[in-house]
Write a protein that binds this DNA or RNA. Structure first.
Lengths: 346, 346
DNA sequence: CCGAGCGATGAGACCGTTAACATAACCGAC
DNA sequence: GTCGGTTATGTTAACGGTCTCATCGCTCGG
């Protein structure tokens, strides 16, 4: 008797509103040439029937769905996870859905496979949140991505594709200049793994800022993003008397470093100032609260989607490949302060 | 001239293989009644043309797409993020895509909206990784979720829906029994925010284990998952002489607690043993490495998808609502050890 | 030896939407 | 007043699959 009322389709709405289904379609897609009165009548019917256009039918008929594909590598790290969230938020606001494929490895096959999955879904565009560093991965990407609008969320240019990212060099510069302005002679750097372009960008910014201020460039310590590597570096630095400021490539490393310094009775910021990168939620609750560089991932997501939508909806095919950079912000907290004594006096 | 070779469709494959499009469809769906020889011939053509069935067309024709919708709340927390990853992995293996919608709030409107988005995409099923605690949210969910297969990833039963989760009570029990077996008189507990059913489950397990062993149940400290709240609790506990073991509801809180104890010269594990929950990547690199309860999120993802697939593909509508529980594992590390002296002697 | 039953395949309708084209009404200009 | 050009709407054909049903050989039992 009480049949499950099959969800309304466009013709149901049309019948109820007394128009053709095509007019309903026009209303749903904000086509300009619909009389306001008709528009309202249709919308009333839409609400009355709780009509939602079927995304599959739309995608099929239009050739592309309102779906953005996202390829994500290491989606548990803070940066990638935050970027994914940012893209999803922006997409949702723009009326797009987000289909995610994670990448276990970065080889040719995995990348191709992931892209195939997404294109099979007729996604309107693809956002790549993965370092396409290996030439083979990039090549795999390029062949497929030539056909579908794509944006790479990476600070380095990749294979002629548009990119969006936080300006890593600028962020590092902010950190270093902040420390120098406090009176530190120079700044040490604990970098991330050099296979990541983010790590390379931060190291470059650090070096550039020091050189611009004509300061000595200390040797670089290399970590792997983990607190453990920060801890190890901290033990090493605690033994030196010529270190008054350290810039860590991410907050997790800074966390480990803080612990090591604390164990060795090196006071922060009195003896050594520390600055991190990321502004993870924990940072302002560390002891001392960590000065760090905040990245606006929501903005990255918005820009990312903006670029995609331009490519998708844009008519002019000759738009130049864009490389948007989002400006990071320095969050000054207690872990950085002016040096209380000259480094040499230790 | 060299036209972009529009990607192959099923009729192209059929023509090349010398069969009807329907036979190709059968091959793509592993229909049993296709001669092996025909099957091979079709597959050869499929590979030759690099044919991928269009997901939109499939979804439209079949009434359901090979897409799993995931609703996620707070996708930056370790548990939710890991669960999302687990579901995506399992879905990918099963040949399904994953469409994600994040939930900014947990009110009626947001939940309805998110579900509408997913059902408009004709998703085959929905996995909810969000606490549907509020009655209104649950109600919103129920009305829609009655129509589409759904699984809730939550340790508490919700509105007659199937659930999958790590057994929180069991995990807490493992932690407490481990500490008791080392010789501790009793175990203190720093819980998570009681609005989370996970936090409640862990607190319940802790209490049950103590009562089963007929031990005194100390007052509960309450945190908010953050390291800061762990730090605060640590300062409080460091001042007491009757604490020899603490079970923290998550690793982030344990991290803060360890720091506080270290500052107060309370040794871990000599003076106080600490056990956490989650096994975040940092845990084994803390000093001391943290004993904790590991949750197998990949398994949760697999079970989640398994349940969904049963609901989707299953024919018998009378399957009982299932509540799968994944067993957690205790990871014993250096932060827990036998009490070196009786608690009373401090 | 013949028809029931099954295995393998094919033909055409159909899913719900958008795109292309057609049509009717209306506008101002000559 | 009639004609080109909008504007608002309707009609019909895709889009690329799956599903239902029909067809054609076979095999096998009586």
């Amino acid at each position: 008797m009480s049949q499950q009322p099959r969800s309304a389709v466009i013709r149901d709405v049309a019948r109820l509103a007394g128009v053709s289904h095509q007019t309903v379609s026009r209303v749903m897609n904000n086509h300009p040439s619909v009389r306001p009165e008709t528009h309202d009548r249709v919308m009333k019917a839409v609400h009355q029937l709780n009509f939602r256009p079927n995304a599959n039918a739309r995608g099929l008929a239009a050739g592309r769905s309102r779906l953005i594909g996202v390829i994500s590598h290491e989606p548990l790290l803070f940066g990638p996870a935050s970027t994914l969230l940012g893209v999803e938020r922006a997409a949702r606001t723009a009326g797009y859905g987000v289909s995610v494929v994670t990448l276990e490895q970065l080889d040719h096959h995995s990348v191709t496979e992931a892209l195939d999955r997404l294109t099979a879904q007729a996604v309107a565009g693809v956002a790549v949140i993965a370092p396409l560093l290996s030439a083979t991965a990039a090549a795999a990407a390029q062949s497929v991505l030539a056909a579908v609008p794509a944006v790479v969320v990476e600070p380095d240019a990749v294979a002629d594709l548009p990119t969006v990212a936080v300006d890593q060099v600028e962020g590092a510069r902010l950190a270093v200049e902040h420390l120098l302005s406090l009176g530190h002679e120079t700044v040490w750097h604990l970098s991330g793994p050099p296979t990541w372009s983010q790590a390379r960008g931060r190291a470059d910014g650090w070096r550039q800022a020091l050189e611009a201020a004509q300061r000595a460039v200390p040797p670089t310590l290399t970590g792997d993003w983990s607190p453990r590597s920060g801890y190890d570096a901290g033990l090493e630095l605690a033994g030196r008397s010529d270190v008054s400021a350290v810039f860590c490539a991410n907050d997790h490393q800074a966390l480990g470093l803080l612990r090591a310094l604390h164990e060795r009775r090196v006071r922060v910021p009195e003896d050594i100032s520390v600055v991190g990168f990321d502004d993870i939620p924990e940072s302002r609750f560390l002891s001392p609260p960590l000065t760090t560089v905040r990245q606006d991932f929501d903005e990255v997501g918005r820009r990312c989607l903006g670029t995609l939508l331009e490519l998708i909806e844009g008519d002019e095919p000759a738009a130049p490949v864009s490389h948007l950079r989002v400006r990071p912000t320095l969050m000054v907290r207690a872990s950085s302060d002016r040096p209380s004594r000259l480094a040499v006096s230790r």
